[in-house]
Design a protein around this nucleic acid. Structure first.
Lengths: 118, 118
DNA sequence: ACCGTACATCGATATTCGTCGAACATCGAA
DNA sequence: TTCGATGTTCGACGAATATCGATGTACGGT
Protein backbone atom coordinates (compact mmCIF):
# COMPACT_ATOMS: atom_id res chain seq x y z
CA UNK A 1 0.00 0.00 0.00
CA UNK A 2 1.41 3.45 -0.83
CA UNK A 3 2.09 5.83 2.00
CA UNK A 4 -0.63 8.19 0.94
CA UNK A 5 -3.46 8.34 -1.59
CA UNK A 6 -4.34 11.09 -4.03
CA UNK A 7 -7.09 13.39 -2.82
CA UNK A 8 -8.05 15.98 -5.42
CA UNK A 9 -9.21 19.46 -4.55
CA UNK A 10 -13.00 19.14 -4.65
CA UNK A 11 -13.22 22.39 -6.59
CA UNK A 12 -11.46 20.70 -9.49
CA UNK A 13 -14.17 18.06 -9.73
CA UNK A 14 -17.08 18.99 -12.01
CA UNK A 15 -20.62 17.99 -11.15
CA UNK A 16 -20.88 15.43 -13.92
CA UNK A 17 -17.93 13.58 -12.43
CA UNK A 18 -19.51 13.52 -9.00
CA UNK A 19 -22.79 12.24 -10.37
CA UNK A 20 -21.14 9.67 -12.55
CA UNK A 21 -19.17 8.44 -9.52
CA UNK A 22 -22.45 8.04 -7.67
CA UNK A 23 -24.20 6.34 -10.58
CA UNK A 24 -23.22 2.78 -9.77
CA UNK A 25 -24.97 0.33 -7.46
CA UNK A 26 -21.81 -0.86 -5.73
CA UNK A 27 -20.62 2.66 -5.04
CA UNK A 28 -24.07 3.59 -3.80
CA UNK A 29 -23.85 0.73 -1.32
CA UNK A 30 -20.52 2.15 -0.17
CA UNK A 31 -22.16 5.53 0.25
CA UNK A 32 -24.96 3.90 2.22
CA UNK A 33 -22.39 2.61 4.70
CA UNK A 34 -20.94 6.10 5.01
CA UNK A 35 -24.32 7.77 5.35
CA UNK A 36 -24.02 7.82 9.15
CA UNK A 37 -21.15 10.35 8.72
CA UNK A 38 -18.79 8.16 10.70
CA UNK A 39 -15.36 7.02 9.70
CA UNK A 40 -15.44 3.35 8.72
CA UNK A 41 -12.67 0.77 8.47
CA UNK A 42 -12.37 -0.88 5.09
CA UNK A 43 -13.69 -4.16 6.46
CA UNK A 44 -17.11 -2.50 6.85
CA UNK A 45 -17.52 -2.44 3.08
CA UNK A 46 -18.69 -5.92 2.21
CA UNK A 47 -20.53 -4.86 -0.88
CA UNK A 48 -20.66 -8.06 -2.90
CA UNK A 49 -17.56 -7.83 -5.11
CA UNK A 50 -13.93 -8.88 -4.76
CA UNK A 51 -11.29 -6.87 -2.87
CA UNK A 52 -9.61 -5.39 -5.91
CA UNK A 53 -12.96 -4.31 -7.28
CA UNK A 54 -13.79 -2.60 -3.99
CA UNK A 55 -10.46 -0.81 -4.30
CA UNK A 56 -11.41 0.32 -7.78
CA UNK A 57 -14.73 1.75 -6.62
CA UNK A 58 -13.10 3.34 -3.60
CA UNK A 59 -10.68 5.07 -5.88
CA UNK A 60 -13.50 6.33 -8.10
CA UNK A 61 -15.25 7.89 -5.12
CA UNK A 62 -12.02 9.30 -3.74
CA UNK A 63 -11.01 10.86 -7.05
CA UNK A 64 -14.46 12.39 -7.34
CA UNK A 65 -13.70 14.18 -4.08
CA UNK A 66 -16.38 12.31 -2.17
CA UNK A 67 -14.33 10.32 0.31
CA UNK A 68 -11.22 10.68 2.39
CA UNK A 69 -8.93 7.70 2.95
CA UNK A 70 -6.75 7.63 6.02
CA UNK A 71 -4.05 4.97 6.16
CA UNK A 72 -3.05 3.65 9.54
CA UNK A 73 -0.57 0.83 9.60
CA UNK A 74 -1.74 -1.78 7.16
CA UNK A 75 -5.33 -0.66 7.50
CA UNK A 76 -7.44 2.00 5.87
CA UNK A 77 -10.28 4.15 7.20
CA UNK A 78 -12.80 5.86 4.97
CA UNK A 79 -15.01 8.86 5.62
CA UNK A 80 -17.01 11.43 3.69
CA UNK A 81 -15.35 14.71 2.77
CA UNK A 82 -17.36 17.42 4.46
CA UNK A 83 -16.05 20.11 2.12
CA UNK A 84 -17.68 18.32 -0.79
CA UNK A 85 -20.91 17.76 1.13
CA UNK A 86 -20.95 21.49 1.68
CA UNK A 87 -20.34 22.18 -1.98
CA UNK A 88 -23.38 20.23 -3.22
CA UNK A 89 -25.48 20.11 -0.06
CA UNK A 90 -28.87 19.25 -1.51
CA UNK A 91 -27.56 16.74 -4.01
CA UNK A 92 -25.34 14.84 -1.63
CA UNK A 93 -27.55 14.90 1.46
CA UNK A 94 -30.37 13.68 -0.75
CA UNK A 95 -28.28 10.89 -2.21
CA UNK A 96 -27.09 9.80 1.21
CA UNK A 97 -30.57 9.70 2.66
CA UNK A 98 -32.04 7.92 -0.35
CA UNK A 99 -29.35 5.30 -0.76
CA UNK A 100 -29.40 4.52 2.94
CA UNK A 101 -33.15 3.90 2.67
CA UNK A 102 -32.79 1.85 -0.50
CA UNK A 103 -30.04 -0.25 1.10
CA UNK A 104 -32.39 -1.05 3.95
CA UNK A 105 -35.16 -1.81 1.51
CA UNK A 106 -32.80 -4.07 -0.43
CA UNK A 107 -32.00 -6.24 2.56
CA UNK A 108 -30.07 -4.62 5.36
CA UNK A 109 -26.70 -2.87 5.80
CA UNK A 110 -23.93 -3.78 3.36
CA UNK A 111 -26.65 -5.36 1.23
CA UNK A 112 -24.43 -8.29 0.34
CA UNK A 113 -24.68 -10.59 3.33
CA UNK A 114 -26.03 -13.27 1.02
CA UNK A 115 -22.94 -13.09 -1.13
CA UNK A 116 -24.75 -12.78 -4.42
CA UNK A 117 -21.62 -11.91 -6.35
CA UNK A 118 -21.75 -11.09 -10.06
CA UNK B 1 -40.61 9.04 -35.91
CA UNK B 2 -42.83 6.65 -33.92
CA UNK B 3 -46.21 7.90 -32.78
CA UNK B 4 -45.20 7.75 -29.14
CA UNK B 5 -42.09 7.17 -27.06
CA UNK B 6 -41.57 4.84 -24.11
CA UNK B 7 -41.88 6.56 -20.73
CA UNK B 8 -41.13 4.21 -17.83
CA UNK B 9 -42.86 4.43 -14.48
CA UNK B 10 -40.40 6.47 -12.39
CA UNK B 11 -40.86 4.07 -9.50
CA UNK B 12 -39.20 1.37 -11.60
CA UNK B 13 -36.05 3.44 -11.97
CA UNK B 14 -33.47 2.93 -9.20
CA UNK B 15 -31.40 5.81 -7.89
CA UNK B 16 -28.18 4.59 -9.43
CA UNK B 17 -29.78 4.73 -12.85
CA UNK B 18 -30.95 8.29 -12.32
CA UNK B 19 -27.53 9.40 -11.15
CA UNK B 20 -25.76 7.59 -13.93
CA UNK B 21 -28.07 9.27 -16.44
CA UNK B 22 -27.11 12.62 -14.93
CA UNK B 23 -23.41 11.81 -14.85
CA UNK B 24 -22.54 13.01 -18.32
CA UNK B 25 -21.58 16.51 -19.44
CA UNK B 26 -23.82 16.54 -22.50
CA UNK B 27 -26.84 15.36 -20.56
CA UNK B 28 -26.11 17.90 -17.86
CA UNK B 29 -26.22 20.60 -20.49
CA UNK B 30 -29.59 19.27 -21.57
CA UNK B 31 -30.75 19.45 -17.96
CA UNK B 32 -29.44 22.99 -17.73
CA UNK B 33 -31.73 23.97 -20.59
CA UNK B 34 -34.66 22.34 -18.79
CA UNK B 35 -33.80 23.91 -15.45
CA UNK B 36 -36.32 26.72 -16.01
CA UNK B 37 -39.09 24.07 -15.73
CA UNK B 38 -40.48 25.04 -19.13
CA UNK B 39 -41.24 22.76 -22.03
CA UNK B 40 -38.61 23.17 -24.73
CA UNK B 41 -38.64 22.29 -28.42
CA UNK B 42 -35.86 19.99 -29.52
CA UNK B 43 -34.18 22.79 -31.42
CA UNK B 44 -33.31 24.42 -28.06
CA UNK B 45 -30.81 21.67 -27.35
CA UNK B 46 -27.71 22.68 -29.23
CA UNK B 47 -25.33 20.89 -26.94
CA UNK B 48 -22.29 20.37 -29.13
CA UNK B 49 -22.85 16.92 -30.61
CA UNK B 50 -24.59 15.58 -33.72
CA UNK B 51 -28.36 15.12 -33.99
CA UNK B 52 -28.35 11.36 -33.57
CA UNK B 53 -26.16 11.68 -30.50
CA UNK B 54 -28.58 14.18 -29.01
CA UNK B 55 -31.31 11.62 -29.63
CA UNK B 56 -29.29 9.03 -27.80
CA UNK B 57 -28.83 11.25 -24.75
CA UNK B 58 -32.46 12.28 -24.83
CA UNK B 59 -33.42 8.66 -24.72
CA UNK B 60 -31.11 8.01 -21.77
CA UNK B 61 -32.75 10.81 -19.79
CA UNK B 62 -36.22 9.73 -20.82
CA UNK B 63 -35.63 6.10 -19.84
CA UNK B 64 -34.29 7.24 -16.49
CA UNK B 65 -37.68 8.83 -15.92
CA UNK B 66 -36.29 12.34 -15.94
CA UNK B 67 -37.91 13.81 -19.02
CA UNK B 68 -41.18 13.69 -20.89
CA UNK B 69 -41.22 13.82 -24.69
CA UNK B 70 -44.33 15.10 -26.43
CA UNK B 71 -44.55 14.60 -30.18
CA UNK B 72 -46.46 17.15 -32.20
CA UNK B 73 -46.40 16.77 -35.93
CA UNK B 74 -42.82 16.27 -36.98
CA UNK B 75 -41.56 18.09 -33.92
CA UNK B 76 -40.78 17.08 -30.36
CA UNK B 77 -41.12 18.98 -27.08
CA UNK B 78 -39.21 18.04 -23.98
CA UNK B 79 -39.95 18.79 -20.34
CA UNK B 80 -39.00 17.57 -16.89
CA UNK B 81 -41.18 14.94 -15.22
CA UNK B 82 -42.53 16.50 -12.07
CA UNK B 83 -43.31 13.10 -10.52
CA UNK B 84 -39.62 12.28 -10.60
CA UNK B 85 -38.63 15.69 -9.26
CA UNK B 86 -40.98 14.97 -6.39
CA UNK B 87 -39.46 11.56 -5.80
CA UNK B 88 -35.90 12.83 -5.31
CA UNK B 89 -36.55 16.48 -4.46
CA UNK B 90 -33.23 17.43 -2.91
CA UNK B 91 -31.10 15.55 -5.38
CA UNK B 92 -32.81 16.80 -8.50
CA UNK B 93 -33.44 20.39 -7.45
CA UNK B 94 -29.81 20.55 -6.42
CA UNK B 95 -28.62 19.15 -9.72
CA UNK B 96 -30.82 21.53 -11.69
CA UNK B 97 -29.64 24.57 -9.80
CA UNK B 98 -25.98 23.56 -9.96
CA UNK B 99 -25.86 22.59 -13.61
CA UNK B 100 -27.67 25.77 -14.61
CA UNK B 101 -25.00 27.77 -12.76
CA UNK B 102 -22.15 25.72 -14.23
CA UNK B 103 -23.59 26.14 -17.72
CA UNK B 104 -23.52 29.89 -17.24
CA UNK B 105 -20.01 29.69 -15.86
CA UNK B 106 -18.99 27.60 -18.85
CA UNK B 107 -20.09 30.18 -21.38
CA UNK B 108 -23.80 30.85 -21.56
CA UNK B 109 -27.00 28.91 -22.30
CA UNK B 110 -26.70 25.78 -24.42
CA UNK B 111 -22.96 26.10 -23.97
CA UNK B 112 -22.35 25.33 -27.62
CA UNK B 113 -23.21 28.51 -29.47
CA UNK B 114 -19.71 28.46 -30.88
CA UNK B 115 -20.30 25.09 -32.45
CA UNK B 116 -17.15 23.48 -31.06
CA UNK B 117 -18.15 19.98 -32.13
CA UNK B 118 -15.84 17.11 -31.56
C1' DA C 1 -48.67 11.87 -55.03
C1' DC C 2 -44.32 13.65 -54.16
C1' DC C 3 -40.74 15.73 -51.53
C1' DG C 4 -38.56 17.95 -47.61
C1' DT C 5 -38.30 18.35 -42.58
C1' DA C 6 -37.61 16.57 -38.00
C1' DC C 7 -36.44 13.22 -35.31
C1' DA C 8 -35.79 8.20 -33.98
C1' DT C 9 -33.38 4.00 -34.77
C1' DC C 10 -29.73 1.02 -36.70
C1' DG C 11 -24.95 -0.44 -37.53
C1' DA C 12 -20.23 0.34 -36.86
C1' DT C 13 -16.32 1.91 -34.20
C1' DA C 14 -13.51 3.59 -30.43
C1' DT C 15 -13.39 4.37 -25.75
C1' DT C 16 -14.60 3.70 -21.01
C1' DC C 17 -16.01 0.79 -17.28
C1' DG C 18 -16.67 -3.22 -14.05
C1' DT C 19 -14.72 -7.32 -12.81
C1' DC C 20 -11.33 -10.71 -11.64
C1' DG C 21 -6.81 -12.83 -10.43
C1' DA C 22 -1.99 -11.94 -9.88
C1' DA C 23 1.66 -9.15 -8.47
C1' DC C 24 3.30 -5.53 -5.51
C1' DA C 25 4.00 -2.44 -1.33
C1' DT C 26 3.69 -1.41 3.44
C1' DC C 27 3.27 -2.50 8.11
C1' DG C 28 3.21 -5.43 12.45
C1' DA C 29 4.59 -9.53 14.64
C1' DA C 30 7.47 -13.54 15.47
C1' DT D 1 14.91 -10.50 8.87
C1' DT D 2 11.29 -13.28 7.55
C1' DC D 3 6.33 -13.95 7.26
C1' DG D 4 1.47 -12.90 7.12
C1' DA D 5 -2.20 -9.45 6.78
C1' DT D 6 -4.25 -5.61 4.45
C1' DG D 7 -5.17 -3.15 0.61
C1' DT D 8 -3.51 -0.97 -3.82
C1' DT D 9 -2.04 -1.45 -8.60
C1' DC D 10 -1.54 -4.02 -12.97
C1' DG D 11 -3.08 -6.73 -16.96
C1' DA D 12 -6.66 -8.81 -19.25
C1' DC D 13 -11.34 -9.41 -20.82
C1' DG D 14 -16.21 -8.70 -21.81
C1' DA D 15 -19.94 -5.41 -21.43
C1' DA D 16 -21.60 -0.93 -21.75
C1' DT D 17 -21.30 3.72 -23.69
C1' DA D 18 -20.51 7.91 -26.72
C1' DT D 19 -20.23 9.11 -31.19
C1' DC D 20 -21.11 9.28 -36.08
C1' DG D 21 -23.36 8.49 -40.62
C1' DA D 22 -27.02 6.07 -42.93
C1' DT D 23 -31.57 4.53 -42.92
C1' DG D 24 -36.34 4.62 -41.48
C1' DT D 25 -40.80 6.87 -40.28
C1' DA D 26 -44.33 10.06 -39.69
C1' DC D 27 -45.95 14.53 -40.84
C1' DG D 28 -46.64 19.09 -43.61
C1' DG D 29 -46.47 21.50 -47.69
C1' DT D 30 -46.68 21.78 -52.72
Amino acid sequence: MPRELRHPDPRDVPLDRVLSALGDPVRLRIMAVLADREEHPREDFEVGVGPSTVSHHMRTLREAGLTRHRLEGTRCFVSLRKETLRRYPDVLEGVLRTCAQEAVAAGGPAAGSGGERG
